[in-house]
């Protein structure tokens, strides 16, 4: 039960302001989700480098010399950017598997938030404004992003229980609603080899999408399959390297509003989240149809 915001920029001149716009939208949705907040932000990519965002409950210790240690392990240059409890490690794209296994060895307590050429995920417990401040979200640029404020229903309020959930390289998912068959799906996904970090229903949805991608579906097809296999109430917003998508369950009673102008496509759980976007007065504003997959790509 939560608030979702999303912004996909068409106008490049807005890109330096992406973080600032999304952070403001996120804070507006505090009432819908005061427990934790998170943001997935897409930028860069195409330079042969890839990024891993990691989280630590003890950053003062874990992040010391992490770039050096990782560089030594993979034998390639590594750049590190530390933001509070999160660090983004950037290195040549062909080293992803090597870096993952090196990290598991070097700092076993680190949690991987995201992996991808363009994606960084930041999330923590606390009020959205505190989370936005802690990660300095307002200063971040990018091409598109998705944010989430969480009011936990049945699973614990933890960093890993916060959204967005990463579903694969450069892919993430946020959710508003409550799934009713996630335990059965979780058992099946575990049988197929997925490892879960939380009891969160959204993590099951994210893992489900990952599984479908692994089976050869594209993201649109995976979401279509989800309409058949996921029971309960959901509005999902998903991010990819090039764009973002939206899908609501067939009953579609959780709120969702979208706006589109020549400059951007925006998503909010409520219109309130959109009121400060430029030119919103003249935007095409509508509510996504039930059981319909929407996608925007660069």
């Amino acid at each position: 039960m939560c608030g979702i915001v999303g912004l996909f920029l068409k106008d490049k001149s807005l890109e330096p302001k992406l973080g600032a716009m999304l952070a403001e939208m996120l804070v507006t949705m505090t009432d819908r989700g005061p427990d934790s907040a998170g943001l997935a932000i897409y930028g860069g990519g195409g330079d042969g480098l890839t990024k891993i965002t990691v989280q630590s409950s003890n950053p003062g210790k874990d992040f010391v010399d992490l770039d050096k240690d990782l560089k030594e392990a993979i034998g390639k240059p590594v750049a590190m950017k530390i933001k509070s409890t999160h660090a983004v490690l950037e290195f040549p794209a062909d080293q992803v598997d090597a870096a993952r296994s090196a990290l598991a060895h070097l700092r076993p307590s680190l949690k991987i938030m995201s992996v991808g050429d363009a994606l960084e995920i930041y999330k923590e417990v606390g009020l959205p404004k505190d989370v936005a401040q802690r990660f300095d979200l307002a200063k971040m640029g990018g091409t598109h992003g998705i944010g989430h404020t969480r009011m936990a229903t049945e699973s614990a309020v933890t960093t890993l229980g916060a959204h967005p959930f990463s579903t694969g390289p450069d892919q993430c998912l946020v959710h508003n609603g409550s799934l009713s068959n996630h335990n059965g799906l979780r058992r099946e996904l575990i049988r197929l080899g997925t490892t879960f970090e939380t009891q969160n229903d959204t993590e099951v949805a994210a893992a489900y999408v990952s599984q479908k991608l692994k089976e050869g579906q594209d993201l649109g097809q995976a979401l279509e399959s989800g309409l058949d296999d996921l029971d309960g109430f959901f509005t999902f917003v998903v991010g990819t390297k090039d764009g973002f998508g939206v899908v609501r369950d067939p009953i579609a009673c959780k709120p969702a509003v979208m706006a589109e102008t020549d400059q951007y496509v925006a998503f909010g759980s409520e219109y309130r989240a959109l009121v400060n976007l430029p030119g919103i007065e003249d935007a095409r504003v509508w509510e996504p149809e039930p059981a319909t997959v929407y996608f925007w790509n660069h």
């Binding site: 039960m1 939560c2 009432d31 009011m151 109430f233 959780k254 759980s269």
Partner: peptide, 14 residues
């Protein structure tokens, strides 16, 4: 079985 104009705790707050 559900209220006609809200669903879930985030809507209930409103």
């Amino acid at each position: 079985c559900r209220h006609p104009d809200w669903t879930g705790p985030d809507d209930l707050e409103i």
